[in-house]
């Protein structure tokens, strides 16, 4: 009888544990970044081209480590209206391919409940100009007072995404575009 009661206790504990894990909304797992900033930069001796969007959206699951970003191509603003038109019309073809997406998994998931700076490796894929390319990127995550800030800088080769640069503008546009993502995540309520 004593054995049976012990067994029941264990079962009870497991039930409680399972319910606790399965309904652990108290600790947020899903974090959202509504107005993430994405900037890109092309540097050549002839011309620097810079564009930025403040309308990217991102989400992060701190338990599974999955991270997802999406940005509308037409939300990128350039210094010169003509560049913006060329970007949308000639290079990115935003009417055909309106958005870009990054979908990845954090390889070394840290304890997001603890404040600190974390250098994380994200394995994922970048979907741009209808071409999906596997990418491993490094990102810095900073956790302070229940906020998560993420920053990552990486290079995107135009060639990888089938973005054709004609010979006439080859000297004005870099083969590798430097992309910077800045995202402030808040817990999804």
């Amino acid at each position: 009888m004593v054995f049976k009661i012990e067994k029941l206790k264990i079962i009870l504990k497991i039930i409680i544990l399972v319910i606790a894990i399965a309904s652990s909304n108290a600790q947020a797992q899903v974090w959202l970044s509504k107005n993430a900033k994405i900037r890109f930069f092309s540097k050549t001796p002839l011309e620097d081209i810079e564009a930025a969007s403040n309308y990217a959206a991102g989400a992060l699951n701190t338990k599974t480590g999955r991270i997802f970003f999406k940005v509308m191509m037409k939300s990128f603003k350039f210094e010169k209206a003509l560049m913006e038109e060329h970007f949308n019309e000639n290079y990115i073809e935003s009417d055909k391919y309106p958005s870009a997406e990054f979908d990845g998994i954090i390889q070394n998931i840290p304890d997001f409940t603890k404040d600190g700076n974390y250098e994380l490796m994200i394995k994922g894929s970048l979907l741009l100009h209808a071409t999906k390319v596997p990418r491993d990127i490094k990102a810095t995550f900073r956790v302070t007072n229940g906020k998560i800030e993420a920053k990552s800088i990486f290079l995107v080769p135009c060639q990888d995404h089938n973005i054709k640069i004609p010979s006439i503008t080859r000297k004005n546009i870099s083969d590798n575009i430097e992309v910077t993502i800045l995202a402030n995540f808040t817990a999804k309520s």
């Binding site: 599974t64 997802f68 935003s94 309106p98 958005s99």
Partner: peptide, 24 residues
Amino acid sequence: AQDDELASLVNSQTDSTIDDKVIA
């Protein structure tokens, strides 16, 4: 479920009206 939610969550946050404008 949460991971599928992630993509749809981001989609719901993306302002697709940006794309609505016919340019050029």
